[in-house]
């Protein structure tokens, strides 16, 4: 698979940045407006999947690789666990130990924005990794006949 037509590539160049930006907004403002880590993470994964579909497998192999997805996945999970363990500063696991701040401000609600960030990175990277595995698998099998599709 070597990507789609020129029209799709150009539109993707314009739109992909905005999709990623929207996903980041949804993640960061999750505790103030509708959204949050889950929705924002899936939006991030969708934007990256659009880039991979439009520019093809070569681009995915060079820039957005499995290793990057795996690393980001683990980092997001570790960030969430770090927030949970730091809750021991307040007494128990998952305590909201930071000051709550004003309702409706970006820096409010204690640890919730940090946990949102961890969940967003984790969900986005995990789902994008699965998508990448599916896309790469199809490329491997559609080349030759089905019997010899598996690479050594």
């Amino acid at each position: 698979m070597q990507g789609m037509s020129l029209i799709v590539k150009n539109i993707t160049r314009v739109v992909a940045g905005f999709i990623i930006l929207f996903g980041a907004y949804i993640v960061l403002y999750g505790h103030v407006t509708p959204g949050g880590g889950f929705a924002g993470g899936v939006i991030l994964a969708g934007g990256l999947a659009l880039v991979v579909l439009a520019f093809g497998e070569e681009f995915a192999r060079n820039v957005l690789t499995h290793d990057v997805a795996r690393l980001a996945d683990s980092m997001g999970a570790l960030l969430f666990l770090l927030v949970a363990v730091l809750g021991f500063m307040g007494g128990v696991f998952f305590t909201n130990f930071l000051p709550l701040g004003d309702v409706g401000a970006l820096l409010s609600a204690g640890t919730i924005p940090i946990a949102n960030l961890g969940i967003g990175i984790k969900v986005g990277a995990g789902l994008f990794g699965v998508f990448l595995a599916l896309a790469a698998f199809r490329r491997a099998t559609s080349g030759g006949s089905a019997a010899h599709g598996r690479l050594p």
């Binding site: 889950f38 699965v130 698998f137």
Partner: peptide
Amino acid sequence: VLTSIVIGLSVAALVVALAVRLYEKYG
């Protein structure tokens, strides 16, 4: 339900991966 939706998506991805693998083997 918010967690359940995302879990549903990842489970669907896993099942699709299994189906693709089976198609490759049996056609």
